[in-house]
Design a protein around this nucleic acid. Structure first.
Lengths: 149, 149
DNA sequence: TTAATTTAAATGTCGTTACATTAAATGTAG
DNA sequence: CTACATTTAATGTAACGACATTTAAATTAA
């Protein structure tokens, strides 16, 4: 179903303005699916994303600033997301030895375990999105990158 | 700049998983720009979207349910968005004559005026996104629609 | 070295979102 | 008709986000 039927809007000013709405709508569509995916693990999407960044760094720590820099949604509050993850024992905070202002955040083995379990679901979910070929996905990436240029 | 550099992630599991992240990231990029666009008019993005739906219906009214159905982000609370718009005099509520449970929401002339002024800014902003040709935007729409299929 | 500036993270706040519940009107089955 | 279920919108709430402020440490300049 095209974006037109999805939001019941029959005409658009241009393909570009349609594409902008299409991206916002597709984002909402994807996000909704992700929320459902993470919910059984007691994770919100931002929490999941932070955990993934920390796993990418592992065994090196990440500072809060590094988390902010890499988060998809820059506006969310990294400090409080780390609070939540820490209270669940999924990450640990330590004072950064080089710079006492900074905080080293590392993913715990519990955090790694949890992510490992979500991996299976994530893979299954992405495999379910068979509607795009690898080449089409590549093309989509090119166009999105170009849009932001 | 490609998504890889933007979020400092060098490798992705597949082009598809990269595309998913790319959509989420591009959404965040677009949303941020929209927030700045609407701010001078004292509108949030959901408020703006509801106003646009109401203008699309004008002079017919829309029920709350119709707004929910057409909103890009289904999870936001249409009733309270209408509260905000009503308190600013941009929309008006009337009881629906056919069904007394339902509420007819219409955009006021003030609301139409405000939207007319934002139109200029919206056009200018979209015209600023010259990075994609009409054909490329069309292709982007095809790929996004296909992804959601 | 001291004072001023910048940087990192945490916190306070206010509005919004997400989700469940409520209230009222309508629809439906017995 | 009556009772029960469904639908429509509004509301209560707890958590989250956006954004300014604060606190502490590091950097820079005088």
């Amino acid at each position: 179903m095209g974006i037109g039927e999805d939001i019941k809007q029959s005409k658009f000013k241009s393909e570009l303005s349609k594409a902008i709405i299409n991206i916002l709508y597709t984002n909402s569509w994807l996000s909704q699916k992700q929320v459902l995916l993470f919910k059984p693990y007691g994770l919100t999407t931002p929490q999941f994303n932070v955990l993934r960044i920390l796993r990418g760094q592992h065994p090196k720590p990440a500072t809060i600033n590094l988390l902010i820099e890499r988060m998809l949604d820059k506006s969310s509050n990294a400090s409080r997301i780390v609070d939540k993850l820490e209270s669940k024992g999924l990450v640990a905070r330590r004072q950064c030895p080089n710079d006492r202002r900074a905080v080293d955040v590392i993913i715990t083995s519990q955090g790694l375990d949890l992510l490992a379990r979500t991996d299976l679901d994530m893979d299954r979910w992405e495999d379910g999105l068979v509607s795009l070929s690898e080449e089409e996905a590549r093309q989509l990436n090119v166009l999105l990158d170009k849009l932001r240029a």
